[in-house]
Structures are given as structure tokens and as C-alpha cells.
Amino acid sequence: MDTSESPWEDDSPWGDNPKSIQDSEWSKISSDFQNAGYREGITAGKESHLQQGFDEGFAQTGAPLGREIGLLRGAASAILSLLTSKNPLPGLTSDSNRDALVQEARYINSELSEIRFSDVVPPDLEAIAHAREHLEAANEDDRSMDIELGEEVESKRKMESLEDAMAKMGAGSITAEVKKGRPKPDDVVRLRGRLTQLSEKLGVPLGLL
């Protein structure tokens, strides 16, 4: 144990000095004004940067990620609608072959439809780092604020797990799907692979994917 410093603090030579009362009064005033400024500043700083954050999130993460999933779903839906239409491509004459392809297309469509934003969105590293700072600061600093990081996503996740629970209760037919847990970004890669294979069998190139 390190005891070299504590004795000095315990009987501080300035402990009885009346000037310290003035000092503490003074520091109270100064911190009152600092705190008032801090509160105003934090509101102004936040409001003036919401838009910038929004634009970043939209352009850098949300739009490209959404488009990636959307393209896969659209292509998978087109392939399935082709396979189940009256006039699929020439060469797909064997009924048993076609049934297998339809089954595969259904599987891919249904798996893709499970994927939600909260399953594939990458973590906001800056938000995590900042939340950690808050936790550390909370131990020593009265100014610590409520941590509301990722609150949107978190509440959405809660809502969706509720939806999952309702789905389980409602539909007995999808019990096979239920035990797997939420899809992961890896599943997107896997499903893209299967969709690409399927479309190659049909001779339909998926240029966009």
C-alpha cells in the first residue's frame, strides 16, 4: 500500500486558515457561473451539430447499408417471381429442378426479410468511446449527464424483440426459424452468396450486387 502522500493531506497546513473560507466562497461563485455557461454551451453545441451528425449518418452508413440490403431483397424477390411465373426462362423445363430452385429462392427471400437495421448497423465507435468517458467521469464529476447514446437504436431493438415474441406466440409455422436468434452481418454475406449462385444457375447476372 502506498502511504507516502496521505499524511500530508490529512493535516494540511492550510486547513485552519480563514482565507480558505473566502476561497471556497469564491470558488462557489466561479463554479456557479461556469456551470451556467456549461449548460448553455452544451445545448448550443448539441443543437448546432445535430444536422451535421445526421448528414454523416445518412450518407456514410444508413443509405449505403440500406441500399445493400434493399438490392439483395429486390433481386431475390425478382428471382422468386420469375421462378413462380408461368413463363420462366427457357431451359427450366424439369419440374423437379424448378421446385428445388423455387424452394431455394423462398428460403433466401424469407431469410433476407428477417434482417433489420439493428442487426447490421456497425457500432458507432465514437458514441461508445464517449459513453465510456461518461462512466469514468461519473465517479468523480457531478456534472455527469445522462447517457442517452444509441437510445434510438436501443429502444428500437426492444420494440423488435417484442415483435419477435408476438410472432412466436402467433405463428406456430415458423418455429424452425425462431431458435436461431437475430441475423448478423455475416448472414448478409452468406445470403448474397446463395443468391448469386441461384441467379448463375438461371443465367441471370446480378450486376448490381
Binding site: 451539430h49 445535430l50 451528425g53 444508413g62 458507432d124
Partner: peptide
């Protein structure tokens, strides 16, 4: 506040961009 604005804005923008696209 700037950090919080960026973080909160980013969460909203990610979600909205995903939904639309």
C-alpha cells in the same frame, strides 16, 4: 454538446438513410 449532437444526429441519420434506401 457538439459530441452529443453529432452522436445523436448520426444515430437518427443512419436509421433514416437505411429506411429510405
Amino acid at each position: 454538446g457538439r459530441i452529443h449532437g453529432l452522436i445523436e444526429g448520426r444515430a437518427l441519420g443512419r436509421e433514416k438513410g437505411f429506411e429510405m434506401w
